[in-house]
Nucleic acid binder design. Structure first.
Lengths: 196, 196
DNA sequence: GTGTCAAAACCGACCAGCCGGTATGTCGCC
DNA sequence: GGCGACATACCGGCTGGTCGGTTTTGACAC
């Protein structure tokens, strides 16, 4: 992919506008005006508005997958790895909160094949995450009385919801928030010592 | 048979289409076709497309508020009340999953004053919920090491996320799901009995 | 340096089509 | 004969996307 200030500016403007007004409610005209370029320039770098949106997904998916692989490769106990993964996802999501908002809200605006592609890669990510929990369950550390898929969803719901309440200008520190949410999740995940 | 059911049919069709394709991406034409009426008929009952959307919000907000008041009025220990509220919100959200999806995804499509109105009523709901947690904290039952707002968000994130993974056709029972998610939340909310 | 020239980058007027909304008319019923 | 409940044709405005043309860039010869 080519590096150009035009493509970058357009992408940045698109992310901001998509996050604020939604994809369908944002016109190409608005985007190019916000980016300070012309429509001709934009369509020189992107095939379509859909292309622009997919680029946002692509970048985020690639970034998250790279982080996940890196953390898993680093090794450690299941609990340590899962904890590191959770904190990283949350921190990354805070750093890319606008992209995240677009990610969750505009999936169904993507063309069908690209939507499938995104869903596929996202499922792969969730599966790796589920595998970690599964390992922890086998080790007797995590509870097994709740469907695995629900546990995974329970975590990602927090990631999803971040953009609805977290404000970077607010009093809360990014790292602290990530740790606290991770703590909430891991607390509910660990086995209670109730007899089974 | 074709009397005043026009408004209902239109609303039903709108909810389904808004949930599936988003508000901005759904045309009035599509809605009236899906509802089997004409545009003239629709604009006889609704002032605008925005009006149609607001009706969906209104109904859901009123319903949830009524449930909340009823449960609180019923009384009980803080823990019992909070648990009942959580389960009810989750069950209601499952019953109205399409409305819920629209609720969270289309807020910024509403006209500014109506958006404020929705936000206001939603905040009131959250405040009552927070008050319950706060009471539990004062009673020494719930942890106080995490900001109250985060605890509230932590719960509603699950409500929000339901439409992203739960399928009514799936194997999971509605009530069971509500209980399990509530259990996860309350588990992470309760004070760990680690020595202090 | 300078001239050459093709390719890449960029411009902006333009288009067909759909959008939300409306004006006017028709119909059955009190 | 008036009034509420619809139907239909229509409107200006905006949409994503196109296209012929112009400018900028960079490699190379001299």
């Amino acid at each position: 992919m080519k590096d150009s200030h035009v493509a970058d500016d357009v992408t940045r403007a698109a992310v901001e506008l998509f996050a604020r007004q939604g994809y369908a409610n944002t016109s190409v005209q608005q985007i190019v005006e916000a980016a300070g370029v012309t429509k001709g320039a934009m369509y020189h770098y992107f095939e379509s508005k859909d292309d622009l949106l997919f680029g946002i997904y692509e970048r985020l998916l690639t970034l998250q997958k790279a982080h996940l692989d890196e953390i898993i490769a680093r090794g450690g106990t299941t609990d340590q790895v899962l904890r590191a993964v959770c904190i990283d996802v949350l921190e990354t999501s805070i750093d890319s909160m606008e992209e995240g908002a677009v990610f969750f809200r505009s999936l169904n605006m993507l063309s069908a094949p690209r939507q499938q592609e995104v869903t596929r890669r996202r499922r792969a990510y969730h599966d790796e995450f589920a595998e970690l929990i599964s390992r922890g369950q086998a080790e007797g550390m995590y509870r097994s009385d709740i469907p695995l898929a629900m546990l995974v969803s329970h975590f990602f719901s927090d990631v999803h919801y971040l953009s609805h309440w977290y404000s970077p200008e607010g009093p809360e520190d990014k790292t602290l928030v990530a740790e606290q949410l991770t703590d909430l999740f891991l607390t509910s995940l660990r086995r209670t010592d109730v007899a089974t």
